[in-house]
Design a protein around this nucleic acid. Sequence first.
DNA 1: CTGTCGCGGGAGAGCGCTGTCCCACCGCTG
DNA 2: CAGCGGTGGGACAGCGCTCTCCCGCGACAG
Lengths: 361, 361
Amino acid sequence: MPADEQPGALLDDASAANRSGGAPTLEDVARVAGVSRATVSRVVNGKRRVAPEIQEVVRAAIATVGYVPNLAARSLVTRRTGAVIVVVSGAEEAHADGSTTIDFADPFFGRVVGGMLRALRPRDVDPVLMLAETEADRQRVISALSNGNADGALLVSTHSEDPLPELLVRAGMPAVQFARPAQQVPMSYVDVANRDGGALAAAHLVDRGRRHVVAISGPLDVPAARDRLSGFQDEMARRGHPWVPTVNGNFTYASGVSAMQDLLQQEAKIDAVFASNDLMALGAIEALHDHGLRVPQDVSVVGFDDSSVGALSRPGLTSVRQPIEEMASEMARILLDTIADPDRRVTSVIFEPTIVVRGTS
Amino acid sequence: MPADEQPGALLDDASAANRSGGAPTLEDVARVAGVSRATVSRVVNGKRRVAPEIQEVVRAAIATVGYVPNLAARSLVTRRTGAVIVVVSGAEEAHADGSTTIDFADPFFGRVVGGMLRALRPRDVDPVLMLAETEADRQRVISALSNGNADGALLVSTHSEDPLPELLVRAGMPAVQFARPAQQVPMSYVDVANRDGGALAAAHLVDRGRRHVVAISGPLDVPAARDRLSGFQDEMARRGHPWVPTVNGNFTYASGVSAMQDLLQQEAKIDAVFASNDLMALGAIEALHDHGLRVPQDVSVVGFDDSSVGALSRPGLTSVRQPIEEMASEMARILLDTIADPDRRVTSVIFEPTIVVRGTS
DNA sequence: CTGTCGCGGGAGAGCGCTGTCCCACCGCTG
DNA sequence: CAGCGGTGGGACAGCGCTCTCCCGCGACAG
């Protein structure tokens, strides 16, 4: 008895401390259920067979003490966190240098996040949001990942030369991109068939009987912009319009306005416009109105993205729709699979666009 | 030697394992710097004075081994995670039952998150996004919080009867709401002076010489909707228009259309409309156009929110602006303070609205 | 010159969990 | 009936970190 290092008092103490010390632990459950911590852990995680009647007892004990696993402790040993980082770049205010940035208020981001959530929630994984505008931001992402602060990253960028994919691949971090990366990096991605989207717009405009068609492109160093334009031009050519006057914008409303003004100046007659995103399409409409032209009576306008701003404008903007939510869900699914099996090959999934016809065409 | 369970090889192994075993740990840094783990920890956290020259040595060691603290281990002992949950409810698709829900694609959420980020980033706290539509979702939030998965919650809800604030207060979790809670719960919040916003709209319309003014309100169980309307009505009364015909909508575009149709039917003459948010204002404009009325020549329209859909529509929507980003930043700041000092009193910060005049008035 | 205090460093005990190793037991086969 | 594989539970060693306790040492007052 005196040799016993743990006197009886300790046991009493322990059973009293059942829950006094804050959140109940595995230990507490084990004591109540009359089994070992390991068994409780097994029941919680379903990792190994446990006799049904013992499972019953353990579950009851869990319920009575109100046990919730401590994720920090768990991830300390499993090296898994159940969180992924959603990295958004190109979201900060544009007006700094008039470059390709899009405001974070762009509904696009909301839709993307919503889509990811659909795939993440059922797997009990939560997204943590991080911006990657500055070098410091990027370091934060990298270290969050190498910290074991998150298991992987979902990249949504609007830049063409984002260094992050490169960095992540080099660090061997699981990651998936939205849209094909501009530089060649071995990273999974989802994308829409941008060429097909451009072709859809061309076919629609020609079918509507338009003959004097122009285009407003995005910056040509962005693969998506390049593909939308060439898909559009190729389909126009196929339908007998080998030459489409084109001006480049940078995906902003303002650039849509000025691109349209340029086109109006250089072309004698215009009866249709294809813009590589909705914001620019809206800008183009503004410029057309200023020029005394009516949409769609005089000029048809087709955008790209099927964004809510387009849908809500009057008349509603005809637009090429990319299934953003589904694409984002797929991204999340690919990431989760990659996390589960890191040796998985890099994959990409391409979605087909559709055209949503509204009032402007 | 045979009795020695751990032969000398193990030691070599250990010094070789300096970094072989994955991420470098405090231990590794300590060995390189020739100090104890505790001292390295002190340098990293700046918790206690450490001799400058030792700090120097430790920092150098950290740099050479490329040490990054493991957050799981840290939070296991500190019971802090450096993450807060952003709970969004009322974001899921509306069309289920036509209720008050707003699509997650609403730029509003993006702006809110962006504002939060501004306050969170400098303090090295990351937001994790969670939806709270179903009971299961709410449980997830609660358990994430009691798990120690996050330190607090930022609530952005568009429902009037969200049970979550109640639950969080009861669980003693730090949390801050966007907009005053509908039910009386002792929780900090930020809000805009909705009454003043309504008054601003009234003053503007009367100053424009409008005399036959109507209003489209939000659901009156939402405090914000109530305040906007009564602020508007009171100011109208003060300026000689004691009676303002009013129809309730539910903050959606469609409800704006039908509310306006109702008003058009019941009022002989209308030359101005105040809608309690921009979506409904846009809907009202649609209905006015269908009725052959021009905006702003025949009817002035003022919305509320200064959302991007309003800003981008043609003509631009005049709207009462709430400084969403600043409000969200303030929310985050309050939450961070509450986490730092849990005994802090419940506080609320009210922001002043402004009116942004565009083409519709 | 000694007592005392404060400063700065080390040692060590966990935080709550998982996973490996081990062992008891059961039912089977030879 | 001994031997054997398989099943299911317990013990225990950490995961990487913080923090409390302790101790040595120099400065300073008595």
